[in-house]
Design a protein around this nucleic acid. Structure first.
Length: 298
DNA sequence: AACGCTGACAACCGCCATGTA
DNA sequence: CTACATGGCGGTTGTCAGCGT
């Protein structure tokens, strides 16, 4: 007997989330906190399955999420961590607190994979590589130098990320404290898009006009009002336009909401951190035997 | 202008792990 | 111990905008 679906397929809406749905979800989380996703469709009337709600929240609505292009440092760190951990996107994301695993995964698949491939072919060597990005047919000296480079870069990136996390640990807040700002930001993007689909026109309850020029301002006004009434926004625009918007929230909160206040969850992948951050780690890696540590990367 | 192609990314699906009654 | 509910994760797909022809 297979597992039953997470929710009834009948009557469950799929596809892109509308601002109205986002507002419903955010208001639920504001009230009850994240978790108990199964209860959301029942209590809010949202026609989304619990899983979809959780994903929407963790990937787009929760606080501390940085959108937009990746910095060089982030990119470097992803490459290093991917080489170390493989496609463990959640683990990689735990070192990039402002990015979601989904974002990192997408970025890897769309950008970095190609970039690395290009670099690899551009180097002219075309040497086969292991799953950890190290070439099979290089001399021991070369291998060690490359290893040293990898370690140095990864150490630096990891150190930066961890110090960033640490500096923000004092600022522990409920993670949904600024999710209204997240949704406001999403909303702003949304109102810029002309209505194309039937879906979109349905979800915008008050409009039945035929041109974008009429639709957009009206929708913005309506939703703005809905927003203010829900969250008491004094200045909707100002929060949207805040440059440092995402950093002003609570970065460092990845999956859990009070995780950072829990000392027990501060050390993911501590073995890796040790060898990345301590000089002894280099020796550890050099002498490391996968045969003796079969479970480390599982 | 119309069409097809491609890239980017949001969202879904299926499986697995864990918690609980 | 077992069955079930729930959440988490990684892979994959669907959609849409931008671009070239």
């Amino acid at each position: 007997m297979g597992r039953p679906p997470c929710c009834d397929k009948v009557g469950v809406k799929k596809g892109p989330w509308t601002p109205e749905e986002d507002i419903m979800l955010v208001s639920y989380v504001q009230e009850h906190g994240p978790g108990n996703w199964r209860a959301i469709p029942k209590t809010t009337g949202l026609k989304r399955c619990s899983k979809s709600c959780r994903l929407r929240w963790t990937n787009y609505l929760r606080s501390g999420i940085k959108r937009g292009s990746f910095t060089d440092q982030e990119e470097k760190m992803i490459i290093q961590l991917q080489a170390l951990l493989g496609n463990k996107w959640a683990a990689i994301a735990s070192y990039l607190p402002e990015r979601t695993d989904n974002d990192i995964k997408n970025y890897w698949n769309t950008h970095l994979k190609k970039k690395l491939k290009k670099l690899e072919s551009g180097s002219g060597t075309d040497q086969p590589t292991t799953s950890h990005g190290l070439s099979h047919s290089i001399s021991r000296g070369q291998w060690e130098r490359r290893l040293q480079d990898n370690i140095t870069t990864a150490k630096q990136a990891l150190h930066d990320a961890l110090s960033f996390e640490n500096t923000n640990k004092q600022l522990v807040q409920p993670s949904y404290a600024s999710s209204t700002e997240n949704i406001a930001k999403l909303l702003k993007q949304w109102v810029k898009k002309p209505i194309k689909s039937e879906e979109s026109s349905k979800c915008s309850s008050t409009q039945n006009s035929s041109s974008d020029q009429e639709i957009v301002p009206k929708r913005e006004t309506d939703l703005n009002e809905a927003f203010e009434s829900l969250f008491g926004f004094e200045s909707f625009e100002s929060s949207i336009n805040s440059d440092d918007f995402s950093r002003s929230t609570s970065p460092g909160l990845v999956n859990g909401e009070s995780e950072l206040s829990d000392p027990n969850v501060l050390a993911p992948l501590s073995v890796l951190e040790n060898w990345l951050l301590d000089d002894q780690g280099k020796d550890y890696l050099t002498n490391f035997s996968f045969d003796e540590n079969p479970d480390l990367f599982l």
